[in-house]
């Protein structure tokens, strides 16, 4: 009897916290699905009477009549940004991790630590030189410029993820190949790379989510409507007085959708990336 009471208490506490976590999700989904006739701040907590996707389409397409842009263009910008940036930074991370675990040289640990520091810095501390430099490289305000930025500032975390992963690959395998006469690239291509799928999954999912969710770089490097990523567009949509709150919230859901889908379907790898972010494998 006593045990089941504790059990009950456990479930009650978990349920209370679940409410706290669900509330924002609930509002997002419910508000987005309400028809315009039904949307009212007085009844914001009520369930919708019928399903309706008008808020989503307005957030997606915008309204010329009311004078605001939808987020569809920025959604595509984010896709064009995130896909190459994710792939490139994973490749860099993989090579770096390979070197740092299997081809250690004098000072390689120090170099690793110094690279790692880059993932903790507040980006405010590099943003002014960054703008000036990108301008000189003629990539300021462009998606390629933003890709470059994300690849570079993604080096620390992707290197870390691969390093932690390759540590688990037995070094004997590499040594054996070395003796067999395989060179640096050969070993990578024929031994390491085929084993790297889980590492790539973790690194790419991590980079995908964090680049998709980034705001500061997008805000400062590509604020122009032609190339701004989705978080910048959403923030802009939400700051506008002429945009109804339900449209803002529908926009928020659309913005959150890709990372949420990844989380739902590839949660295992997401979690692994998350735990690595704290340096613990």
């Amino acid at each position: 009897m006593k045990i089941s009471l504790t059990r009950l208490l456990i479930y009650i506490i978990l349920a209370i916290f679940s409410i706290f976590y669900i509330i924002p999700m609930y509002i997002m989904v419910v508000t987005g699905m309400k028809s315009f006739a039904e949307v009212s701040l007085d009844t914001m907590w009520n369930l919708p009477n019928s399903f309706n996707f008008n808020s989503f389409s307005l957030a997606w397409l915008g309204s010329i009549k009311e004078g605001f842009r939808g987020i569809s263009g920025s959604f595509l910008n984010s896709v064009f940004l995130v896909v190459p940036a994710t792939v490139i930074s994973a490749l860099f991370g993989s090579l770096n991790g390979y070197v740092l675990t299997k081809w250690q040289f004098r000072g390689s640990d120090l170099i690793f630590t110094m690279i790692l520091f880059g993932m903790f810095i507040p980006y405010q501390s590099i943003i002014i030189p960054l703008v000036l430099t990108l301008q000189r490289l003629h990539v300021y305000g462009t998606i390629p410029g933003l890709i470059l930025v994300h690849v570079i500032y993604g080096i620390p975390i992707s290197t870390l993820i691969f390093r932690n992963y390759y540590v688990t690959v037995p070094t004997e395998m590499v040594e054996a190949s070395k003796i067999d006469g395989a060179n640096f690239l050969g070993i990578y291509r024929w031994v390491i790379f085929p084993l790297s799928t889980p590492g790539f999954a973790v690194a790419m999912i991590w980079q995908f989510t964090s680049i998709w969710n980034d705001f500061l770089f997008g805000l400062i490097i590509t604020p122009n409507p032609a190339s701004q990523p989705i978080t910048v567009a959403l923030n802009n949509l939400a700051g506008s007085y002429i945009v109804q709150w339900n449209v803002q919230i529908a926009g928020a859901l659309l913005t959150a959708l890709p990372p949420i889908l990844i989380y739902i379907f590839l949660g295992k790898f997401f979690l692994r990336g998350l735990l690595q972010g704290s340096l613990k494998g």
């Binding site: 703008v131 000036l132 990108l134 301008q135 003629h138 300021y140 305000g141 462009t142 805000l219 400062i220 490097i221 604020p223 122009n224």
Partner: peptide
């Protein structure tokens, strides 16, 4: 936003 764009040469 205008300022960063002007500074950045866009």
């Amino acid at each position: 936003v205008f300022k960063t764009r002007m500074l950045g040469g866009d």
